[in-house]
Design a protein around this nucleic acid. Structure first.
Lengths: 337, 337
DNA sequence: TTTATTTACGCAACCGTTTTCGCTGTTTTA
DNA sequence: TAAAACAGCGAAAACGGTTGCGTAAATAAA
């Protein structure tokens, strides 16, 4: 059996390939009668156009690349869900790439995109990303990039983010108002904008309530669960141990629960805990976890929407603009109310 | 600035395009000296070959399609992680599609794959999938499909699954041995193989322990959280309410916690609970959830490995074979020990 | 009726690589 | 020394659509 191509249809209907092509694309150059015949035969033979031939000629792939640090993560999986919702609606295809928080991986992925594999990119940078040359390079090759959540301010493009500063400020203020004398901030190393903003929010809350900030109040974790456990264990069993924690990373909150259990630290009596988290089990943890929930789905959906809208225009420009979708603080028993 | 193609390199080096192409692909026809020159210039000009031109000519896309019901789900996101690990190693690209548990969506996605967009497919069927014609059709077009987790036995191909029957049997037996007189099975409608197998395992445990099974012992849920809450609420407040539940779906276990809280049902005193679940917060739920954890990462990795290995051969055949990776039962406080 | 316009379609170039085949000059074998 | 083998490269035809342009017939305007 021959490959089923446009030529097959053309031969069958005694028409030229260009007529078939135009008919399938509903061109005004083709009569309604011819279109009907072509569509009917295409349907009957179950013809599906070769996307690569089309992409080659049109220099459009109808594909967007999504680059994220990890996928086993409530935030990112919800974001993907949001992205997929617009991709499906606008008939775009979604290629997923994971950096595993590694800068070299991220560079390699974006480098590949310079080939024209994708029409646009949705990017949430890795922890270890220290410069944005690779991103600027990609954009200079006419591949638009929209950031979401973890952004790089130096790059002039759309950034869909949440109000990390305000959220951290509000949460830390809550801890202090509920009696914390010694609040800590559990976070990760690196220079992620989200971390910086949250840290600043945390600092502001301390300063407004007359608590002296020193860098000791920040507990930096890594990507190694074992190492993080040890770090937290040491901090939480030290003399000047915290009586409140604002946790910046969802995964770390679970480790804090573990450490507290092992150290017989009672939450919230001995230690109040608030975490940035999109876990939908938060209400049923022991005790229920007070969370700052980020609008992950909306962030993904918004970022994808903006990217796709830009791609549909002929001469798009990506404004250097922040779109902020607020997070929501939900008080549960891990912090006093 | 011109597009940077093979022609650019050819002109620059006074060589033919075919020589460049062969040099880049390290053909034996080209001398080492020429190869070195070509590679050097390609590097210098930052040349990246157009993947669509290549795919068109080679009839290979180096892309696999992953079709899953949802992504906001520990099992599937871990599976994606496993898939990505082999994709990255073998330089494949990963297109993700969500069916949202809808048969029509699934059909449309697989239909699109008939275009040759992907070299192979990893599929976990939706709840509502009632026939496998669309899958057989795709396979007949030479696009190999490997199932994972949710499979269709009628389709002759590789299926990477876990031991649902044995796991359910073991878990239900555990409940009964620990005193449950009236165990229930919380599940979903449809004819998913995993559900069927788990149900059979549940039934066998009952029958072996002299507990009469009737279809009343199965609580069928839907995709609507609200509806599921109501269904479970009614069952758990009825006269003949269960004293043990084997929950087949991760998401439903959270709803069970909620219903129990609202009805003041104590877990595990009044109701023992075991759930199929890949939540890594299971240990910190209140009470900690006894789980049957599926090897999601390994399932994804194995399925992808088999698919890619087949794609590398010229004349692959997909054996009609089940690969079973066992789940593990972890007893925590939601069930007695 | 003549001219201008529109309609509907075909021709052929093109998108950027890959690959077959053929050619030349050099090296090996008999 | 002639024939055979080989190494290194180029020409050109694919791969399967898309699109600008040309053209004949049909219609509208003058």
């Amino acid at each position: 059996m021959d490959k089923l191509t446009i030529k097959t249809l053309a031969k069958e209907l005694q028409l030229s390939v260009s007529t078939i092509s135009k008919a399938l694309r509903d061109s005004h150059e083709i009569s309604a009668a011819t279109k009907k015949k072509v569509l009917a035969l295409a349907e009957q033979l179950n013809y599906t156009p070769n996307p690569y031939a089309s992409s080659l000629r049109k220099r459009k792939s109808k594909t967007i690349g999504v680059v994220i640090p990890e996928v086993v993560n409530s935030f990112f999986s919800q974001a993907i869900n949001g992205i997929e919702s617009v991709a499906k609606e606008k008939s775009y295809h979604v290629l997923i790439y994971l950096t595993h928080e590694n800068f070299e991986n991220e560079k390699a992925i974006l480098k590949d995109f310079e080939s024209g594999r994708v029409d646009g990119v949705l990017l949430s940078v890795s922890r270890e990303t220290t410069s944005c040359n690779h991103i600027a390079e990609l954009i200079s090759k006419e591949v638009p990039v929209v950031f979401f959540d973890r952004v790089f301010n130096e790059v002039e493009t759309v950034k869909v983010i949440t109000d990390d500063f305000e959220s951290a400020y509000t949460a830390a203020s809550h801890l202090i108002k509920k009696g914390c004398k010694n609040p800590y901030f559990v976070s990760i190393q690196g220079n992620l904008n989200i971390i910086t903003n949250r840290t600043e929010g945390f600092k502001k809350a301390l300063s407004e309530h007359g608590i002296k900030f020193d860098s000791n109040k920040i507990i930096n974790c890594s990507t190694s669960p074992k190492h993080n456990y040890d770090t937290l264990f040491k901090k939480l069993s030290s003399a000047k141990k915290p009586d409140g924690i604002l946790c910046s990373i969802e995964n770390l909150s679970i480790i804090i629960y573990q450490v507290c259990e092992d150290l017989k630290i009672k939450i919230p009596k001995d230690l109040q805990l608030i975490s940035f988290s999109n876990l939908d089990t938060a209400s049923f943890l022991n005790p229920p976890l007070t969370t700052i929930t980020q609008p992950a789905y909306e962030i993904g959906k918004t970022a994808a929407g903006i990217l796709v809208k830009a791609l549909e225009k002929k001469n798009f420009v990506m404004p250097d603009e922040n779109i902020v979708i607020p997070s929501v603080l939900t008080i549960r028993k891990s912090a006093k109310n």
